[in-house]
Amino acid sequence: MQEHGFTSGLKAGASIAIGYFPVALTFGLLAKTTGLSLIEATAMSIFVFAGAAQYISLSLITAGVLPALIVVNTFIVNIRHFLMTAALNEKMQPDARWKKALYAFGITDETFTVLATQRGDNIRTSFAAGVIVISYGSWVSFTALGHLIGASLPAFLQASMSIALYAMFVGLLVPSMKGNRKVVSLALIAALFNSLFYFTGWLSTGWAIMVSTLASAILIELVSRKGVAA
């Protein structure tokens, strides 16, 4: 029963930890320039753990936006996680609600994609815990480090490391794409919808990702009438 448990989860989450490194470091730095103390910046990463929402909150604080509106905006940005955790629920092993409530805290875009692209429909809670612990650890500790050193990486490394999370998404997608036209279509159509929303400015990022994902998933389902055999 050791297989696909906590340690495998740590390994599967290592790519996220690498990808969070430059993002969290920059967040710590920006938080400092925004006027947050080390404790305040780190606390935000500890309690919120949501990259996009945290970045946006900094620019809203600088703009002097009402804190209550920042909270409302955070909710809007994170609404897409309703869809992701509903999809993830189909893949996870049945378990006590308190355990699911506990690891739910650690579901981000990145931990979701790593968990949801695992083979099989019975991902163990301990595996999810491993993925989340290493990702969360990276996010929190590098936020603090970014604030402490108050500088980002050397320019060339900062630039090249900004690809990390996207490279991970590609690395998760491609193995399922091979010989599976349905997976290719799902990704392609969602990408096209999302690009359309981006370039026309019809929807903000959080909504755009959710609407494109849902539209693609439903459209392909109607066309194929058969689920992807994971």
Binding site: L83, M84, N194
Partner: peptide, 28 residues
């Protein structure tokens, strides 16, 4: 069935178009 499609669709939407804008220089 729709929920089973979500992970692959999400990946497409998370990658594009954001990957093109990681740096000011689009070639990155």
């Amino acid at each position: 069935n729709v929920l089973r499609n979500i992970p692959y669709a999400v990946l497409g939407a998370l990658i594009f178009p954001a990957v093109l804008f990681i740096q000011d220089n689009i070639w990155f």
